Amino acid sequence: MSVSLFPFGLLLVGGWLVWWGLRRRRTLGRVPTDWRRVPGTVIDVGDGVKVPPRIEYRIPDGRRLRVPGPLATPFAVGDEVSVLLDPADPRRARLDVTEQEAVRLVRILLATGGVLVVAGAVIGIVLL
């Protein structure tokens, strides 16, 4: 890559990361307010690569259901986690920790994109 294209590349990649992070941030936290938090228990940690952890939770009628956990989050069998479930259809559930991880990822994307945009602008001005 030519030195003169390097700052442009940084601006382009950084701008894309910021744009994507802002778009993703708008969809975060859209868990409906009527969804309930119920306790869940990790019953299997998976392998961390292909097999996700499995979390079991109880719905109001007493049945036990399972929801997969995120691959990159370290769990131990028996850990308690918070499960968000739809009261209209308790089979629709997701982990609260998954929402928290998504927020953290978006923050990292926005920060990285911002740094790349600033670095590209500074390098571009210095090379002019």
Rank of each mutant, 00 (worst) to 15 (best):
R94S: 04
T98S: 15
R26D: 07
V81N: 11
R30M: 11
F6Y: 07
R30I: 02
Q100M: 09
V81H: 01
W19H: 11
L10Y: 00
E99Y: 10
W35A: 06
L65E: 05
A93N: 07
L127F: 06
G40C: 04
V117M: 11
A76R: 14
D89H: 14
R54Y: 00
L128V: 10
R92H: 09
R36I: 05
L116R: 04
I55Y: 02
V81A: 05
L85N: 06
L84F: 07
V3Y: 15
E101Y: 04
D96N: 02
W35K: 02
L95A: 01
A119S: 14
R92K: 13
R23C: 03
D86P: 14
R30A: 14
L65K: 11
I108D: 02
D61M: 04
L5E: 07
G21S: 13
E99K: 06
E80A: 12
L22K: 11
P74K: 09
G48N: 02
R91G: 08
G113Q: 11
V3P: 03
P90R: 04
A111D: 00
R23N: 14
L109I: 01
D89I: 04
R104K: 13
I43G: 02
G62N: 01
T112A: 15
S82A: 15
P39H: 03
I123H: 04
R92Q: 14
Q100R: 15
R64K: 10
A102G: 10
D79H: 10
L105D: 05
L28M: 07
L84Q: 00
V13E: 01
L65N: 03
G14C: 06
R63D: 08
L85W: 07
T73H: 12
P74H: 10
V45H: 03
V3M: 11
L127N: 09
L109T: 03
A121V: 11
R25E: 13
V106Y: 08
L116E: 07
V115I: 15
R23H: 15
P53D: 02
R25C: 05
I43A: 02
G69D: 12
P7R: 00
D89C: 02
W19F: 14
D86R: 09
V45R: 14
V126E: 05
V106I: 12
P53G: 06
P32I: 03
D34I: 10
L95M: 11
D61L: 09
R58C: 05
E101R: 15
P32R: 13
G15F: 01
P90W: 04
R54I: 01
V3R: 11
T112S: 15
R107T: 06
G40R: 02
S2R: 14
W20N: 09
R24H: 13
V106R: 09
P87H: 05
I43K: 08
L65H: 06
G78T: 00
V49K: 14
F75H: 10
A102C: 04
V115Y: 01
P7C: 00
F75W: 00
G14R: 12
V115T: 12
F8D: 01
G120H: 05
R24T: 15
V42N: 03
E101V: 07
I43H: 00
G14F: 06
T33Q: 12
L17E: 07
G78K: 07
A111C: 09
R94Y: 01
R37F: 08
A121P: 06
G114K: 02
D86V: 12
G62I: 05
D61C: 03
V42S: 06
